[in-house]
Nucleic acid binder design. Structure first.
Lengths: 151, 151
DNA sequence: GTAGTTTCTAAACCTAACTTTAGGTCAAGG
DNA sequence: CCTTGACCTAAAGTTAGGTTTAGAAACTAC
């Protein structure tokens, strides 16, 4: 059997460490596009191993699946991505990561200020600035505001 | 009406910016414990404004509600927390934040190495080390592993 | 004392990122 | 041929962190 027959989903799962169900889910989310063999089963390219690896790495960095799809859309659609292609989108990924780190470091600086003043609940506290919020995972309270000083 | 009658849930919601439903949910999660008035309605202390503020700040830092409950459990149960009490647990919060920042910075360093080598899918790639994973929000694939080199 | 606003509980619903289940099909080996 | 394991789809279930809904009871103001 030639290489061109591709990988079955189970083989891809073993190569990436992902669950078969996760790979099908990623397909539903538009992150990967296998073709079908005569019997209707999914077949994948070897390059898809790398693609899914990228998905997993980007997830560690806190990107959502739609964000990852966005980043992946910069890969060439007409040919197998080269190392250079991967390098380019990895640099985009680094930008995301830098932003997350910056946000957390700014929060840390603010917290340090608040530890010093002991306020933790004043409107002027920088930690209450809604624009600073990390939006760590979509859900959570919708806005932040302080209370009046206790006196 | 004396101050000792406490705040109604709607008042606390306005003071913190949280939804009434969120405050009730936090109670169900053990983050706050109001008493009830004669009619069965929840009544809160003024100190609870600060408590909820702390919850919101800790959420920005990426702590889960169980983790926040853990941190809050260090507050004295028998009296209203003092500024010193808040300062102490804020320092604990800072530790959490430091760890998150460290993890992300290590990931960034690894990514830089990978951008250089262009691998992105080799077992030896540091990004595939399961121990490094950020566990950014509970769900997601359970383990990571690489594929064999393509040759 | 009654209208209007809050609050109450319980249960259902929501999103993200998956997994599990149910019932059926495909592929490989003997 | 027949069995066994991998694969298929669709739908329901799961966790976190909440929101929404429904119907009832409690405050508040006039």
């Amino acid at each position: 059997m030639a290489v061109s027959e591709g990988l079955a989903i189970g083989a891809l799962a073993r190569r990436t460490g992902l669950a078969v169900s996760a790979i099908r889910y990623y397909e539903a989310q538009g992150l990967i596009s296998p073709w079908r063999n005569a019997g209707g089963q999914r077949r994948y390219q070897r390059a898809d191993i790398r693609r899914l690896s990228f998905v997993m790495i980007a997830q560690q960095f806190g990107l959502t699946l739609p964000e990852i799809r966005e980043v992946l859309s910069d890969l060439p659609g007409n040919r197998t991505p080269t190392p250079k292609d991967w390098k380019d989108i990895s640099i985009r990924l680094r930008t995301h990561l830098d932003q997350r780190i910056d946000t957390l470091m700014r929060l840390r600086d603010n917290l340090d200020g608040c530890i010093g003043c002991g306020c933790l609940s004043l409107p002027k506290c920088a930690l209450y600035n809604p624009d600073d919020r990390a939006k760590s995972h979509g859900s959570g309270p919708r806005y932040l505001m302080g209370d009046a000083p206790e006196g």
